[in-house]
Simulated scan of single mutants.
Amino acid sequence: MAMVKSQHTSVIYVTLLFAILLMLVPIPDSMRYARPEWVALTLIYWAMALPQRVSIGVAWFTGLLMDVITGGVLGIHAFAYALVIYLVGRLHLQLRQYPLWQQAITILSLIFLVHFITMFNTPISLSWTHWMTVLTSTLVWPLVYAVLRKIRRGFQVS
C-alpha cells in the first residue's frame, strides 16, 4: 500500500519538473515576456487541490531549484513561491468554490505578486510588455487547471 501512495505523490513532482522544463525552453527574445509562469501555476493548482501534499516547503524547495537553474539571486523565487502558496493554502477552500473565471482573476493577483517579487532580480522596466507574463499566465490558467485536474483524476492522486 505504501508503494502505491508514493507513486501517486510522484505525479505531483513529475508535473513540477515538467513545469520547470517549460520555463527553460528557449524562446525568441520578442516572446520572452509572454512566457507564462508555469511553475507558479503548477504549484498553485496542487496547493489548491491538495494543500496537505503541496505546501510552503515544497514551494520553497521548488523556488530554490528555480533560483539555481536560472542563475538568479538565491531565495528570490523561493520566497515568492512560498508566499503565494501560503496565501493559496489559507484560501484554498474558497478558491475551490470559485468558477474558473474568478479563479483566473485570483491567479492574476497571485502571479502579479510572484512577478513583482522576482522582478528585483532583473532590471526594472516600466514597459507594459514586462507585465505580459501576468496576463498570459492568467489566460492559460483554465488550460493548466484542466490538464492537471485530468492528471490528478487519472492517476488518482489524493
Rank of each mutant, 00 (worst) to 15 (best):
T106M: 15
V84T: 11
F116V: 00
H77R: 04
V134A: 01
T136V: 10
P99A: 07
L113V: 10
S125C: 07
L93H: 14
V114N: 09
L110Y: 15
L83A: 05
I105S: 14
H77P: 01
G72P: 05
V134Y: 00
L100Y: 04
L100I: 13
G71K: 11
L74H: 12
Y81W: 08
Q94C: 07
Q94T: 08
L135D: 03
I111L: 04
A78M: 02
Q103P: 04
R90K: 13
L74N: 12
G72H: 00
H115I: 05
W128V: 12
M119W: 13
T70S: 04
H130P: 05
G71W: 14
T118G: 05
L100S: 09
I107D: 01
I124P: 06
A78R: 09
I85K: 00
L74A: 10
S127I: 01
A78Y: 03
I85T: 02
V73R: 06
A104Y: 13
A82T: 07
W101C: 06
F79I: 04
L93N: 15
P99I: 06
T122C: 00
L93S: 08
L135P: 01
F116T: 04
V88C: 08
G71I: 08
W128E: 08
R96A: 12
Y86L: 09
Q102K: 06
I124L: 15
F116D: 02
L113P: 06
A80Y: 00
S109E: 04
Y81L: 07
L83H: 01
I117L: 15
P123V: 13
F120R: 10
G71M: 08
L113D: 11
T136A: 00
V88S: 04
I105P: 12
I107P: 05
G72T: 05
F116Y: 07
I124Q: 09
L113R: 11
S137M: 06
L108V: 11
I117W: 10
Q97Y: 03
Y98L: 15
G72I: 02
V134S: 00
T129Y: 14
W128P: 08
G75C: 07
R90I: 05
L91F: 10
S137N: 11
S137V: 05
I76D: 03
T133V: 15
H92Y: 15
L110R: 13
F116Q: 03
R90W: 00
W101D: 10
H77C: 00
L83D: 01
T136L: 04
A78E: 02
W131M: 09
I117S: 12
T70Y: 06
F112N: 07
Q103A: 03
H92I: 01
P123L: 07
S109P: 06
L74Y: 14
W131K: 09
L87W: 00
S109R: 10
N121L: 00
L113I: 09
A80P: 02
H130A: 14
L126A: 14
F116A: 04
I111F: 01
I85L: 02
